[in-house]
Design a protein around this nucleic acid. Structure first.
Lengths: 201, 201
DNA sequence: TTTTTGACCGTTAGAATAAAAAAGTCAGAA
DNA sequence: TTCTGACTTTTTTATTCTAACGGTCAAAAA
């Protein structure tokens, strides 16, 4: 039913608005329903439970992310430029969806259910595969030396994610990292990315 | 009074034994006193409060750490070997003192007081300076290209620390990361360290 | 038949309180 | 000067309670 999918989309977008501002745990199904001027049971007609809705939200966010990075996949730029671009995209998403605590290490971890965690790991794997393909292409172009692209992609992404993780934790107990911290974080990630690529040559 | 310092040392070592097993927050001053067969007020004679004792403990741990790495400072080995050695030392300390949650990002963060945090930052700075000097020496030897050693040292250490941080968080809610996770973490750090150095050449 | 809803139920997260245990103090003994 | 038993104050933990939340259902609306 295409009509059903449309409504699901509307609900997901409504949920995202709340989630971005208040976080997943502080957003109730009632609030989402009221925002959309429908009753709570309507929500439950389209999503069996809150977890499913959260899953839909996360899936949408990742779909959006992959859509953007896929666009850049076959552009003719250097590996360094490409990865810098991806880093910036990730950074934008990190900022926009910060309240959803998708980067893990959240104080009130929103992703408690095994279902969500497993889906999250799937997305992580997809991203690793995507980056592995990027590295593979770079090898074929002679930009970097041949290596185990899967391992390198994982290491590369975890190194950058680790810096994000540190930023979240060292955040002085504020709800939101400051603009300054955010900027410093991005710069560190770009520097590291640059050095990392050079180290692969 | 040298006798006083000796006693302080004994108390610190007793505290460490408890801290290693139960963590800082789950260790009481009474327990430390009983272990040493003294009364609680005796402890308070040598340390004005628990924070001071914790500070003493942390200071001792860092002193031990720096003592080890300083030894390797002027040995005639490659930068890669040297940093790999340091990484392994850090890893040993991380494992040994895991329950103290010195790497931050602890669920029950032991380091709440500003005094402790500031001391911790001092140790971090000292470690950064130490590594900056290592990088400087490597530049002078022609092992790596000239750069801003302070920035690079910070980035290098944070990259490795980030991996530790991810390891702690993704730890499946167990009290202790498994041997397997620990090994994987160390290997990632060594790989990253290697690539990082190569990227500095 | 598909979609929507008001009214309802069981569970849970959070506030409030009480009880326990911990940190920290002090007069005085060794 | 160093140490202790007995004490007070503060913090942590356990408990209770309640409001709010997630989720359901019979029935109405489309």
């Amino acid at each position: 039913m295409v009509e059903t999918d449309k409504k699901r989309e509307v609900i997901i977008e409504g949920a995202i608005k709340r989630f971005i501002h208040y976080g997943i745990n502080k957003t109730t199904m009632n609030e989402i329903a009221e925002d959309l001027s429908v009753s709570k049971p309507s929500l439950y007609y389209y999503f069996p439970d809150k977890n499913s809705l959260v899953l839909g939200v996360i899936d949408k966010i990742f779909t959006d992310y992959f859509e953007i990075v896929e666009k850049d996949r076959y552009t003719d730029i250097s590996l360094e430029q490409r990865l810098a671009g991806f880093t910036e995209v990730k950074h934008r998403f990190f900022q926009k969806y910060y309240m959803l605590h998708l980067s893990g290490g959240s104080p009130d971890s929103s992703l408690n259910s095994d279902e969500l965690k497993s889906h999250f790991l799937k997305m992580k794997k997809k991203n690793e595969d995507f980056h592995a393909a990027i590295f593979q292409a770079a090898i074929e172009k002679g930009e970097i030396a041949p290596t185990d692209t899967e391992k390198i992609a994982e290491l590369y992404l975890e190194s950058l994610a680790g810096i994000t993780s540190l930023c979240i934790m060292h955040g002085n107990k504020e709800l939101f990292p400051s603009k300054k911290e955010m900027k410093a974080m991005l710069e560190k990630q770009l520097s590291l990315s640059k050095i990392f690529i050079k180290g692969l040559q």
